[in-house]
Amino acid sequence: MCHNCYPAVATAAPSRRSVARFLAAGAGLTALAACTPDAGTRPPSSSSASATSASASQAAAPSTAGPATSPTVTEPGTTPPAVPTSAPTPTSPAAGLAQQHSLTDPASPWLVVNKHRPLSPADYVPADLVQPNIALAVSGEAAQLNSTTAAAAEQMFAAAAGDGVTMTLASGYRSYGTQVATYNSYVASRGQAEADTASARPGFSEHQTGWAFDIGDGGGACSFQPCFAEQPAAVWAKANAHRFGFVVRYPWMFHEVTGYYYESWHLRFIGVEAAADMSAKGIATLEEYFGLEAAPGYL
């Protein structure tokens, strides 16, 4: 979720998840901006008026009364909170798939990371990080994915190109250390309450797993902004990503389930079988698909 962007001292990467009042004021996102649009983000212009109204009512600006110092976060080598559910529940939509994977192992394509489910270990590093052979808008660790995700991304980017759509890798792997610096910078500048709406706490980021990445459009427009949903890369990915094992992890109007506002650019690999099954059944989130509780906020 690109709800965890790079600090100013890290490799430059496009900014993300703007806070509503900053968008209204016309302020540009900084290198610390998070990848998810914040509360009050407007839907794409094609969305109905009723959806816009619902978004406005559900997305009140967060309080800025949080502390100006960083909260306690799980440090490397310590034990994170217990993570419930290691397999899909018997009644979940995913339970019928022939191939089952762990929901808690960071090396599993079915891993579910959200505000209730931290990584274990918190400082997990994928053993097979590689740089995929695709168009890159970043360098360094952000240009890496785990090998399975990288191979699927290469196939997907090639298929998009065949349809006349150019995608770029806008943000891939993000280490625990990078996330510590990013999150703490947010807390120092905005307070913890607001930081938690714009950046994942260290050890709670999908980007750290190597299973997720953000896409950009070849034209460069609307990177990490609400209008990206209408760019060719986002439109194509929404319609076709499941064919290559990807889902849009943080879909529109499901922030009360996922904990993050719409990120049309954030794709997550779960495997072709599961992604196609979710698409066929019209299920929008991993939480619902695997029969897990909603995670709108940290426990």
Score class of each variant (00 low, 15 high):
residue 3 H to K: 10
residue 6 Y to G: 01
residue 7 P to I: 07
residue 8 A to L: 13
residue 9 V to Y: 08
residue 10 A to G: 15
residue 10 A to I: 03
residue 11 T to W: 04
residue 12 A to I: 12
residue 13 A to H: 02
residue 15 S to M: 03
residue 15 S to N: 11
residue 16 R to K: 10
residue 16 R to C: 14
residue 17 R to H: 11
residue 18 S to E: 10
residue 19 V to K: 03
residue 21 R to S: 14
residue 21 R to Q: 12
residue 24 A to T: 11
residue 25 A to C: 06
residue 26 G to I: 09
residue 28 G to Y: 12
residue 29 L to H: 02
residue 29 L to C: 10
residue 33 A to C: 13
residue 33 A to P: 00
residue 35 C to S: 08
residue 40 G to K: 06
residue 41 T to S: 14
residue 45 S to H: 08
residue 45 S to F: 09
residue 48 S to K: 05
residue 50 S to R: 13
residue 51 A to E: 14
residue 59 A to C: 10
residue 60 A to K: 14
residue 60 A to N: 10
residue 61 A to M: 13
residue 61 A to N: 11
residue 65 A to H: 09
residue 68 A to I: 05
residue 69 T to F: 13
residue 70 S to P: 11
residue 72 T to K: 12
residue 81 P to F: 06
residue 81 P to H: 08
residue 83 V to Y: 04
residue 84 P to L: 11
residue 85 T to W: 03
residue 100 Q to S: 14
residue 102 S to H: 08
residue 102 S to C: 11
residue 106 P to K: 07
residue 107 A to Y: 01
residue 108 S to N: 02
residue 109 P to S: 07
residue 116 H to L: 14
residue 118 P to A: 07
residue 118 P to E: 05
residue 122 A to R: 02
residue 122 A to H: 03
residue 126 P to A: 09
residue 135 A to N: 13
residue 136 L to N: 04
residue 140 G to S: 07
residue 140 G to R: 05
residue 141 E to D: 15
residue 141 E to Q: 14
residue 141 E to M: 00
residue 144 Q to R: 15
residue 145 L to F: 01
residue 146 N to E: 10
residue 146 N to L: 09
residue 146 N to G: 10
residue 148 T to L: 13
residue 149 T to G: 01
residue 155 Q to S: 14
residue 156 M to C: 09
residue 157 F to Y: 09
residue 160 A to Y: 02
residue 164 G to K: 10
residue 166 T to M: 01
residue 173 Y to A: 02
residue 174 R to I: 07
residue 176 Y to A: 01
residue 179 Q to W: 00
residue 181 A to V: 09
residue 183 Y to V: 01
residue 192 Q to S: 10
residue 193 A to W: 02
residue 194 E to R: 15
residue 195 A to L: 07
residue 198 A to I: 00
residue 199 S to T: 14
residue 200 A to L: 05
residue 205 S to I: 05
residue 209 T to A: 04
residue 210 G to I: 07
residue 215 I to T: 01
residue 218 G to V: 10
residue 219 G to N: 15
residue 221 A to Q: 15
residue 223 S to V: 06
residue 225 Q to G: 04
residue 228 F to M: 04
residue 229 A to P: 05
residue 231 Q to N: 01
residue 231 Q to R: 13
residue 233 A to K: 03
residue 235 V to Q: 15
residue 235 V to I: 13
residue 242 H to Q: 12
residue 244 F to R: 02
residue 246 F to N: 02
residue 253 M to D: 14
residue 258 T to Q: 03
residue 259 G to V: 05
residue 261 Y to L: 09
residue 263 E to P: 00
residue 264 S to H: 09
residue 268 R to L: 12
residue 272 V to T: 15
residue 272 V to C: 01
residue 273 E to S: 14
residue 276 A to W: 00
residue 277 D to W: 05
residue 282 G to R: 08
residue 283 I to N: 04
residue 284 A to E: 12
residue 285 T to H: 05
residue 287 E to P: 06
residue 287 E to H: 11
residue 288 E to F: 00
residue 289 Y to C: 03
residue 290 F to C: 06
residue 290 F to H: 07
residue 294 A to W: 04
residue 295 A to W: 01
residue 295 A to I: 06
residue 297 G to I: 06
residue 298 Y to F: 12
residue 299 L to Y: 07
